[in-house]
Nucleic acid binder design. Structure first.
Lengths: 219, 219
DNA sequence: TTCAAAAATTTACATATGTTAAGAAATGAA
DNA sequence: TTCATTTCTTAACATATGTAAATTTTTGAA
């Protein structure tokens, strides 16, 4: 089985490579999607709806390790990652389990808690320094009630999220850990260099030891 | 590990038991939820919205084994099971894999195909004689566009479906096959007597042999 | 009721994945 | 840079689950 490279560690011309990576990052700063960009991919919105939506969004620039939600709290904010990454985790028998990983261009929230307004048994933390666009979910729901086309976008986003969850069920269900890792690397190029292996392993439903074996090409 | 009974096969007073089961079924005919009942649990609707919604729903009484969607077709109908059961399946290396099982009171549809209007790589069949309430998804989307509170119900249903999918991910992800079987039996009492083991096994992400071991209490 | 076909169970065996532990590599703070 | 801490890898071993095949049970049509 052929797997994608997951490390730049075996370079022997470090200087050139570092410069190259810097230039790539620099360009990407201007290519990043915003929350509004993403919403507009689902549906066109009137200028009024757009400005009402923009009014509830605020930008955050937070360092790696920041907590967006602590276990036991009720989640009130929904986040969009403009740049960076985060993960949803919980404790199973005192073991840190990664439930979800979100990268640039994806939404991040404690959806069970957010939608039900019950205390969350999950926590959220940033896994890189990140730029977020966040909003109070309550503000969004209020807008949904006031503006039909916002409600419509909301329905489409929920439907899309549901389909994504369905695909993940299929993936967990019927692919081997190795195939899931390969799929993940294809879907999110570079993820293996950004998210610690232990979190990836947990997300993929396997152990660090197994994922390390998979990376090594054994098996 | 204690598991729920899954068979009435070891009775030795068949006649009385058969009569009892008959009476239970008789009563349940009046207790079954309808699609409208279910929708109203999510949100109150005006009489006008209700009648517009009722107008697109039609009832079907179909025998076990009926196909609701064939692999390769584009799904156009969404179904609600008033009484009975069905499953979504697909072929992986010529092997029949059960992707989803729906019982009384649940929705059933080829959601990927329905939402994207692409040919379905999954099929749907009834696993029992069933009473369905069905509608053209296009009719529902049209109503969503015309009536804000229907769109609102649509968003809530999608959100609920997403949360259910999330829960299933957790279940597949972090429970053993035995724990998943126990959970399934608790959530849907009687399911083990209604759906063939091979479909349950596939749904739970395991094999008939393993599930049989689990039922037997070995392991 | 009878009987053939399908489904479920059991057994034996193979294998992937988990567990534990030790060592190597990478990371981040001083 | 140095050094302690964390993370990753590797190895040895245990175990759950899959595969294949034979047997029993159930199902459903005649």
């Amino acid at each position: 089985m052929k797997l994608l490279p997951h490390s730049l560690s075996n370079h022997n011309c470090g200087c050139k490579i570092i410069i190259l990576v810097y230039l790539i990052n620099y360009d990407l700063n201007f290519l990043h999607m915003t929350l509004i960009d993403t919403v507009l991919q689902f549906q066109k919105l009137s200028p009024d709806s757009l400005s009402r939506l923009e009014a509830i969004i605020f930008k955050q620039d937070l360092p790696k390790g920041s907590s967006l939600l602590r276990i036991g709290e009720i989640d009130r904010y929904f986040h969009f990652i403009v740049k960076g990454s985060g993960r949803v985790y919980y404790l199973k028998d005192d073991l840190d389990v990664t439930d979800y990983i979100a990268l640039d261009g994806q939404f991040l929230g404690g959806v069970e808690s957010l939608f039900t307004q019950q205390p969350s048994h999950k926590g959220i933390e940033l896994t890189e320094n990140s730029i977020l666009e966040s909003f109070l979910f309550h503000d969004f729901e209020k807008l949904c009630g006031e503006i039909h086309e916002v409600e419509s976008v909301g329905r489409k986003l929920s439907t899309f999220a549901f389909l994504e969850a369905q695909r993940r069920i299929e993936s967990i269900h019927f692919l081997s850990a190795a195939e899931r890792y390969e799929e993940l690397c294809l879907k999110y190029p570079g993820i293996a260099n950004r998210i610690p292996l232990k979190h990836l392993a947990s997300y993929l439903g396997t152990t660090p030891v197994s994922l390390s074996r998979i990376r090594g090409g054994n098996q």
